[in-house]
């Protein structure tokens, strides 16, 4: 089933996919065991003439065993997940000194990208605003300041394994490092009105040289 996952092109995406696979196999095994047991029981203990059910009220040992076992399994799973989650979402754990900082703002029904320009400050004259086109270099740490001017949108790049809601009047920090050049879609994943379907931006991941050329073109020096 997981071969349907879009190709992963971010540094942390592999970690997410590993967890995905781990849970997939875990749940698959549980599913097969439970369903297998169920089917065996249904066949073996079907009503047969002259045979009665056994009077069994339960088993405290079994109750304790399966309560403890499931608790342990889910906690182990959780332990493996905390670091991944923090790595992706906790601003205190982001790689420092990003190569690129961009503000992405949702607006019915577009993504507005704002580059701070050479002075690295938003709200100055050298800012650059682009509609629906995000340009970043490959293998570089990108910080995104996510916000919205109207309703809630959600910044989703399937190939990066990144999704984060964009809220009005709030600036939410996310980051990524793309590992492969290409043009990827940025759909909006949170219902935001009648134009929600089709609200679509593009992430252009360039080779470093191409990216430098792009910067040079925008801010000639």
């Amino acid at each position: 089933m997981l071969q349907w996952l879009p190709e992963n092109v971010s540094t942390y995406g592999q970690g997410v996919d590993n967890l995905f696979y781990a849970i997939y196999y875990l749940t698959l095994i549980v599913f097969i065991l439970v369903m297998g047991t169920l089917i065996v029981f249904l066949i073996k203990y079907r009503h047969q003439e002259g045979k009665r059910a056994d009077y069994i009220e339960g088993s405290t040992t079994l109750e304790i065993v399966w309560t403890a076992a499931t608790t342990v399994i889910v906690f182990v799973l959780a332990m493996f997940s905390y670091p991944q989650w923090n790595n992706i979402k906790s601003p205190t754990q982001f790689p420092e000194n990003p190569d690129v900082v961009v503000q992405v703002s949702g607006k019915q029904f577009n993504w507005d990208m704002t580059y701070p320009g050479p002075d690295n400050e938003f709200g100055t004259d050298d800012d650059l605003e682009l509609e629906n086109e995000l340009h970043v270099p490959v293998n570089a740490v990108v910080h995104i300041r996510l916000t919205s001017v109207d309703v809630i949108h959600s910044f989703f790049v399937p190939q990066l394994r990144l999704k984060q809601d964009a809220l009005p009047n709030r600036f939410i920090e996310v980051w990524f490092e793309a590992t492969k050049a290409g043009r990827y879609e940025i759909p909006c994943a949170e219902l935001c009105g009648f134009g929600h379907s089709g609200m679509l931006g593009y992430l252009n991941v360039h080779a470093q040289a191409d990216y430098d050329a792009w910067v040079q073109e925008r801010w000639p020096q």
Partner: peptide
């Protein structure tokens, strides 16, 4: 059982980043 097991995927925050919504 299927519904409960699929809940585990979504309860897992990193995986939920992808499958949320």
């Amino acid at each position: 059982v299927i519904g409960g097991l699929s809940g585990i995927y979504m309860a897992n925050t990193p995986v939920d980043i992808f499958i949320h919504d």
